[in-house]
Write a protein that binds this DNA or RNA. Structure first.
Lengths: 215, 215
DNA sequence: GGTTGTGAACAAATTCACAGCG
DNA sequence: CGCTGTGAATTTGTTCACAACC
């Protein structure tokens, strides 16, 4: 198949970062070539899925050989839009927001925490783990100034929808919601959620009902 | 259909906690009855999906009327195994582990943080946000003593697989992994993951490729 | 009339299996 | 020969649409 914008299934998109992390490990180990079999093992999926997924990016493998690690990593980064940093704003400077601001994993993967946002006047103006805390009203200005394009909601549930509206109004089109509530964003904005308690509730279900995968 | 153990699809299982949270809100508002339409709106899905999902639990609705909120909430809690608390152990008393230990949402939803586990001898024996820090070697004893059945991994990536092995060896069959790496558990154990940076990478993808949902 | 519960139709995702090519 | 890339088959999940029932 030729180059250009194929449509990549959502399930595939959410596995690409896992492959990319595996490729980064291989690069560290100076491994130059990898098979779908090996990559599958590292990513915790099966080889057929790896090949299908990678085929959506293009024909970057060599039959009989495998994939060139560095080249594939580059193509994948490009496809994921990770060739440059995406500064993020974390809204909610409470327990979770502070921890996320201090979590090295974001910066490390190209998402530097550019600022914290909180409505509490006692916090505004202070620094938490080196990150400046601003008032929500400053959002439009901060988006402009710091080039923020992603907002992370780490407020209590009741505040989440209002915050989402403010983020969108400030021109932020991508939102990651940690608040334990359903929020909606207008057409054209993107929303992902991380629901911490939900994951435990799902584990609880499977603990009660032995064997989700009975073999 | 009669009562008893139908097989509930995985996609449905991961939506049940969202419905349950919506039902809890309705209970707070003293609403006694709810339609699939209304529940769908609250849960951010469509009504057909709500009805299909709820039908796996049994025929708990009344045609022409809707679902009795309290009764449905009870049945759903029972199905999810949430009629009693599940004490959890958080492994890794670093930045993220501490934040999770202090995150009220776990206890609130029936998952009290019974202890923190860390290999750092300076931390062992101390209390963080009122939670006692123990050494990994104490795990078997803690499982026995505190009735822990779920382990949360909040360590750096390199330590995660080893911790998972220790948790399983101590008799813990449910694991929630926050470390940014793929880990495996033996047959019969359950594993869920929360990958914080992955979610941002997915957002980055859709920011680059306008419109994931083109209408 | 109103709303559930569910077969049937449809869509998405996964896996199989093998042709194609280095 | 070995491994990719991909159509076809299968499985899983979603949506439709309406009979059943209050």
């Amino acid at each position: 198949m030729t180059d250009g914008a194929r449509h990549i299934p959502e399930a595939t998109v959410s596995r690409l970062p896992v492959y990319l992390r595996s490729l980064a490990e291989l690069l560290d180990e100076k491994v130059t070539t990898v098979s779908s079999e090996r990559l599958a093992e590292m990513a915790g999926v099966n080889a057929a899925k790896v090949r299908k997924d990678l085929s959506y990016l293009g024909s970057y493998g060599t039959r009989g050989v495998g994939y060139e690690v560095e080249y594939l990593a580059f193509q994948m980064s490009r496809e994921l839009g990770l060739t440059h940093d995406w500064p993020v704003a974390i809204v909610g400077a409470g327990n979770l927001g502070q921890a996320l601001a201090n979590y090295g994993g974001f910066t490390e993967r190209g998402f530097p925490v550019a600022c914290l946002i909180d409505a509490d006047v006692d916090k505004v103006g202070s620094r938490i783990h080196g990150v400046q805390v601003h008032h929500p009203d400053d959002l439009p200005h901060l988006v402009e100034e710091l080039g923020i394009s992603i907002g992370i909601i780490a407020t209590p549930a009741v505040a989440a929808q209002g915050v989402a509206d403010q983020l969108v109004a400030a021109g932020i089109k991508s939102i990651l919601n940690f608040a334990p509530t359903v929020i909606t964003v207008p057409e054209g904005a993107f929303l992902r959620k991380v629901d911490l308690a939900l994951e435990l509730q799902v584990l609880s279900f499977y603990q009660e009902h032995r064997a989700p995968d009975p073999v």
